[in-house]
Design a binder for these strands. Structure first.
Lengths: 358, 358
DNA sequence: TCACCATGCAGAAACGTACCTTTTAAGAAG
DNA sequence: CTTCTTAAAAGGTACGTTTCTGCATGGTGA
C-alpha cells in the first residue's frame, strides 16, 4: 500500500531509490555495487538519484543477506581483578591503534569487547572474526567462537591447545636471553628481575627464560613479583628488590612503569644509574628516551603485531589463507640507552667516579 | 522443503530450535527474550533445547528487525597529517577505556572509526549512536550522522554550531587560569607556554586563556608552538623555549610528553627544577609521579569524560533524555608535585619519605 | 447456558538487501 | 523471416529475526 510512495518516517530504502530513478531494485543494487552489466548512463543516473535522496544502504540488511558484517572483535583479557584493563599499558594502545588502521585499510572495523563478558554482548554483534589478546588457556569465549566457525587470531602464542586460526607473538625467551646477555656484557654480575604474579603467557615465558639463564650462567635468581594490575604495587616491589641483602647490580623490569619505579627506588637508595645499577625495562613508552639517565627499553613492536594479527585474520575470513603463514613471530627490538651501558665494560665494576661536569 | 529438517551448513536458527522443542517460532522468541506470557515450564524447556543446539540468535537479523544494533561509534579526529592517531596520548587511551566500560555495562559495544574515512566504512556498520572526540568545526561526518537521525555526543565543546545531541568537556579556560595563578603564587614572575599549532578546541581555548591571563597580570606572553603530532618537535620546541633571551621562570606544557621534554631541556641548560624553573604539564600519565623531581600535572579526568559521554549518548538513544543534562562540564584536577612548589612559598610541603632503614 | 476473559500458543507479515532466474528488446547471423 | 546472441532490466525469493494479530481452551460470574 504505502509501499512505493512514501516511507513512513525512516530512512530512504533501496525501493525508494528504485522508484525515484524509474528502475527496478535489482538495477539499483547492481548500479551501486558495481555488479551486473549496466550501461554507464544508468549507473550514474541511479547513483545520482541515490545521492539526492540521501540513500544509505542498511548495514544490517546487507549483513543478513551476505553473511559478512565487516566487523572484527578486539578482545582484551583482564589482568587480575580489574574489570577491564584495556590500554592499561602503552603496548595495548599501540597494538590496538595499528590493528584498527590495518583493519580499516581493508574495509573492516574493530569492535572492542571484553573477554569475560556476559553472553549477550557477544551475541548482539555479528563478527566476521576476532582478535584475542593474550588468551587464557582454554578460554571459553575463544572455544565457543571457533566452534561456531568464526576465525580467531591471537596476539600471543595460545596455550592449552586452544584451537585458534592463527597467532602472532614475539620470541619472548630469546628476547630475555639476549637482553640478559647484553647486561652481562655491560658488566652486570647479578641481574635481578621485576615481574608480575599474573599467569599470562608473556610473564610466564619471560620469567622462566630468566630462571633458565640464571641457571646457565650459575647466578642465583633475584626477583620480586607483584600484581601487575596494581599501579602502586610496582613501586613497592621495586623498592623491595633494591632493599634485598643480595642486591642486584642490574635489573630488568617486565612491565612498562617499572623503569621509572626502579629509577626512583635507585635514587632513594643513592644508587647511580648506570654506575651502580644497570637498568632495562620492557616498554613502548617514549618517556624513557628523556629520563635522567635515558633507560634502555625492550620494545615488543606492538604495531607490527597488531598489523600482522589483522592481516592473518582477514586473510582467513576471505579465504586467502595460503598467502601468509598462519603463525608469525615478530622480532623484538632492544633500544640501548645510557642506563645499560657501563663506561668500561671490562675494568672495575664500581669505579668511584664523580659526576661529569656540565 | 529442506526447511524444517536440516540446516544446510550454517548455524542453527530459531526455526530449528522451534522444531526441536516442538513449539512455534514465536514461542521460542518469547521464551528466550523473556517476553510474552508463557509458563515457566515452556520457557525453561525452550532455553534448554536452544542451549543443546548451540543456538545463537543472528545479530544481523535482530538488528534489521528492531532497528537497534547495540553499537556505538567511537570517532577520533586526526591531528595534523597523521592518518590515524588513536591513543596518541594517554588521554585517549583512558577515555576510550572508560567509554568502553560504560557502554558495556549498559549492553552496548564500541566500534572504533576514524573521522576521515571513506564513506563505505561508515555505511557498513549499523550504529545506534556515535561518540566524537574533539570534532572539527562543521565536521561533515557529524553533520551527516545527525542529518540521518543518529545521536552524536562529542568529547569537547563543538564549534561552528555543530548540531550535536550533547557534549562533555572540561572548563579549559578556568583550568589554565587556575594553574597560572598557582604558578604565580609559587613565585613565578614570567610564565611560558609550550603549545601546539593545531586548531583543535583544547589547544585554542588553552592558548587564548593563557594570553588573556598574561594581559590581565601585565606579563608579555612567552610561548613556543609546534605540530603536536610530531613527537620530536616537542623536544625541540621545549629547547627553543628555554633558549630564549626572555627565558621564562615557569612553563606550562599543554601536551602529555612536554613534561619530560621540558625536564630534559632544563637539564641541558643547567636549570634546577623547581629552584630555577617551575614546571606544570597537562598529562594523564603516572610517570610524572616518579620523575626527578616529580612534576605537577593537570588531569582532564578522561575517565569521567568517557563515562559521561557514553551515558548521555545511550540516554538519548533510549529516549531518556530528561535524565541527565545534555551538556556536562567535568572539573579538572591539578595534581601538585614538587616541580611547581618553590621553597619560599611555604615550608617543606613534601617531607622526603625515604624508605625506612633496611 | 452464555458471554467473557485470561492464558498459552501459532501464523504470518514485515525489516532492506543481494542475487539467481527470467523476461524483454534489439541486432546479427542464418 | 526466423533464430540465435547478447545487453539491459525486472521478478521474486531468501537471509533470521521480532511482533502484531488471532485462535483455541478452560474457568468464572451472571
Amino acid at each position: 500500500m504505502s509501499r512505493s510512495t512514501g516511507r513512513r518516517l525512516g530512512r530512504a530504502g533501496i525501493r525508494d531509490v528504485a522508484a525515484a530513478a524509474g528502475v527496478s531494485i535489482t538495477t539499483v543494487s547492481d548500479a551501486l555495487n558495481g555488479k551486473g552489466r549496466l550501461p554507464d548512463a544508468t549507473r550514474s543516473h541511479v547513483r545520482e538519484v541515490a545521492e539526492r535522496l540521501g540513500y544509505r544502504p542498511s548495514a544490517a540488511a546487507r549483513t543478513l543477506r551476505t553473511g559478512k558484517s565487516g566487523l572484527l572483535g578486539l578482545t582484551v583479557t583482564t589482568y587480575g581483578d580489574e574489570p577491564f584493563t584495556f590500554t592499561e599499558f602503552a603496548y595495548f594502545a599501540e597494538m590496538a591503534r595499528a590493528a584498527t588502521s590495518a583493519a580499516l585499510a581493508r574495509g573492516y572495523a574493530l569492535v572492542i569487547l571484553p573477554a569475560t563478558s556476559r553472553h549477550d554482548v557477544w551475541s548482539n554483534v555479528a563478527l566476521d572474526g576476532t582478535v584475542v589478546i593474550d588468551p587464557a588457556d582454554g578460554d571459553p569465549v575463544v572455544t565457543e567462537l571457533v566452534r561456531h566457525g568464526i576465525p580467531v587470531v591471537s596476539d600471543g602464542r595460545p596455550g592449552g591447545a586452544l584451537p585458534v586460526t592463527g597467532w602472532v607473538d614475539n620470541d619472548h625467551e630469546a628476547a630475555v636471553l639476549g637482553l640478559l646477555d647484553h647486561l652481562a656484557d655491560a658488566g652486570a654480575r647479578r641481574i635481578g628481575l621485576l615481574t608480575g604474579n599474573t599467569t599470562d603467557t608473556y610473564t610466564r615465558l619471560s620469567t622462566t627464560a630468566y630462571l633458565s639463564w640464571c641457571e646457565r650462567v650459575g647466578q642465583d635468581p633475584v626477583y620480586e613479583s607483584y600484581p601487575a594490575h596494581d599501579p602502586c604495587a610496582g613501586a613497592v616491589a621495586a623498592d623491595r628488590l633494591l632493599a634485598r641483602p643480595d642486591r642486584p647490580d642490574a635489573v630488568y623490569g617486565l612491565f612498562d612503569p617499572n623503569g621509572t619505579d626502579l629509577l626512583a627506588a635507585a635514587r632513594r637508595y643513592g644508587l647511580r644509574v648506570p654506575e651502580d645499577l644497570l637498568l632495562v625495562c620492557c616498554s613502548e613508552s617514549t618517556v624513557y628516551a628523556t629520563t635522567e639517565p635515558p633507560i634502555t627499553t625492550l620494545s615488543l613492536k606492538p604495531r607490527r603485531i597488531g598489523t600482522a594479527v589483522v592481516q592473518i585474520l582477514i586473510d582467513a575470513i576471505e579465504g586467502l589463507d595460503d598467502d601468509r603463514p598462519i603463525e608469525q613471530v615478530i622480532p623484538t627490538d632492544l633500544i640501548v640507552r645510557t642506563s645499560s651501558q657501563r663506561r668500561s665494560a671490562r675494568t672495575a665494576i664500581n669505579p668511584p667516579r664523580g659526576p661529569a661536569g656540565a
